[in-house]
């Protein structure tokens, strides 16, 4: 009975996360139907889907360190769905760019992205996320074993590419930090924290600190 109770509210959390992940799409569809996407709908949709992709990717990457530090192993379960949603929103982001904005005019798209690291970085991240998405099935994971684990570590490369893409998308100068950098810097900060938490010394100490400061709670179950 005890076990089932725990699984019950975790299931609800899972439902909550899936529902939350579809909300941005629902919001966009409703806004589109109400003709409420602003004066530059392509830009609105591209920014919105881009931000959603960044947020879901960062949330996905936060799962493992959070599970370790706070000793909540079940949090790891959300890593995969959140990563899949990141791939979904990255795909929509690129579709808005290539299909809606550029009418799938390949020569024009190519001339836009050739020699433009800003778009190429994003494209590279998208390719990684899509490869990870189509190889995310449990059967493939089991079959590939260690190789699968290594392949899926590419998600960290994708995250770095995405943050670089985000930082390069705004007007300004990164090295002097002059420009519209607030949002991309917050994203970069979160990614930095995620990376720091993967360093054994850091997460072990944090784990200890957490274990000490959070007194053993009475078992609610």
């Amino acid at each position: 009975m005890v076990k089932r109770g725990k699984a019950g509210w975790q299931k609800w959390l899972q439902v909550f996360i899936h529902a939350g992940a579809w909300l941005p799409i629902a919001y966009l569809v409703i806004s589109a139907l109400l003709n409420n996407l602003g004066f530059n709908p392509v830009e609105t949709v591209m920014r919105f889907t881009g931000r959603a992709a960044v947020i879901f990717l960062l949330l996905s990457l936060t799962c493992t360190p959070a599970a370790q530090v706070f000793k909540l192993p079940w949090v790891k379960k959300f890593r995969k769905p959140l990563g899949l949603y990141a791939a979904l929103y990255a795909g929509l982001h690129f579709a808005a760019f290539a299909i809606w904005d550029y009418g799938f005019n390949l020569p024009l798209i190519w001339s836009e992205i050739a020699n433009k690291p800003f778009i190429l970085l994003g494209l590279a991240a998208l390719v990684i996320l899509l490869v990870l998405a189509v190889t995310s099935f449990k059967t493939i994971q089991r079959k590939w074993g260690k190789g699968w684990v290594w392949l899926h570590r590419l998600v960290y490369a994708a995250a770095l590419l995405v943050i670089a893409h985000y930082l390069l998308a705004v007007k300004g100068d990164l090295f002097s930090l002059q420009g519209a950098y607030t949002a991309p810097l917050i994203a970069a900060g979160v990614l930095l924290v995620v990376f720091l938490l993967r360093i054994p010394v850091i997460y072990r100490n944090l784990k200890k600190w957490w274990g000490r400061s959070s007194k053993p709670e009475p078992d609610l179950d």
Partner: peptide
């Protein structure tokens, strides 16, 4: 002042001179 390599003083609209990070052709 912020980014001289990207925003010239003249800043004439010119489809042949791209912004270093994105195209100005369209």
């Amino acid at each position: 002042t912020i980014a001289p390599q990207e925003y010239g003083f003249y800043a004439n609209v010119n489809p042949n001179v791209d912004h270093p990070r994105w195209s100005q052709a369209t």
